[in-house]
């Protein structure tokens, strides 16, 4: 039950719909999306040399040499990236909360988005740990083991795509249902989400191909699949960050206050 006090009264109302809102924390969490992307792009992508990835057709000795030659940058890139991947989880909580303001408290898709975003961190972190281990232990492992670890990481990070698909689907569905005249998140972000989801499916080919567009370093499985996602994150983040002060203003206009 909501209790609304007149603005400016001595004892401001505490009751909010649906529960007290810490707008500052919310905004910090929303910024974690761009933080994740920058970290992932710079550390995993550039420093650890995954943009573009060492080829899927590389022989064990070539993979071993790659880890031996780039041991330090890969170790730094993968270890820090592993840690900062948690920012994606934080961001997905912020997104989920904006979704709840459209879907209702405890909404199904809002929960799905939060879970999808959080679980997405698992394959990324684990793959980073695998590649970090390969670099760390390079002098103790054979080329065959290096090759195995390389593939292990790629198969894991790529094939778990469907978790992220459901996260994105939830966001697309709910934000397109927004009845505000000027939606919190414009439809184009939702549509781009669907394009991202569709681009992921072909990645299932990676265990079976080593060259060409469908290999894990190929134009479809890497460049298109990853970059649709890379564009979705900042695209959605921009509107989430802008949505929070809008929601705060809506709350204030409705006489809903908290003391944060």
């Amino acid at each position: 039950m909501a209790i609304h006090a007149e603005p400016g009264t001595a004892a401001p109302a505490r009751e909010l719909s649906p529960y007290p809102t810490d707008y500052t924390s919310w905004k910090v969490m929303a910024w974690m999306g761009p933080v994740f992307l920058v970290a992932f792009f710079c550390l995993w992508g550039l420093l650890a040399r995954n943009i573009s990835p060492f080829p899927a057709w590389a022989e064990p000795q070539a993979v071993w040499d790659h880890y031996k030659n780039l041991r330090l940058p890969i170790m730094i890139g993968m270890s820090v990236c592993l840690t900062l991947t948690a920012c994606y989880m934080v961001w997905s909580v912020a997104v989920s909360r904006v979704m709840e303001r459209i879907e209702g408290a405890g909404g199904l898709w809002s929960k799905m988005e939060m879970l999808g975003g959080t679980i997405t961190c698992a394959p990324i972190m684990t793959a980073c740990a695998i590649w970090l281990t390969a670099a760390h232990e390079i002098d103790n492992i054979t080329p065959g083991m290096a090759h195995t670890l390389y593939w292990f990481g790629w198969l894991l990070i790529d094939l778990a795509y469907f978790v992220t698909s459901w996260q994105i689907a939830g966001a697309s569905i709910v934000f397109m249902r927004d009845k505000r005249e000027k939606k919190l998140v414009p439809n184009i972000v939702g549509w781009w989400g669907w394009i991202t989801i569709l681009s992921f499916f072909v990645v299932s080919a990676i265990p079976f191909v080593y060259t060409g567009p469908l290999a894990f370093n190929g134009v479809i499985s890497f460049w298109i699949a990853f970059f649709t996602w890379f564009f979705w994150i900042p695209g959605l983040s921009y509107f989430i960050i802008k949505a929070i002060p809008r929601l705060q203003a809506e709350d204030a206009a409705a006489g809903r206050f908290n003391d944060s």
Partner: peptide, 13 residues
């Protein structure tokens, strides 16, 4: 409008 986002993206891809 969304279908044109698709069409545009598909064309570029």
């Amino acid at each position: 409008e969304g279908v044109w986002v698709f069409i545009g993206a598909d064309s570029v891809i």
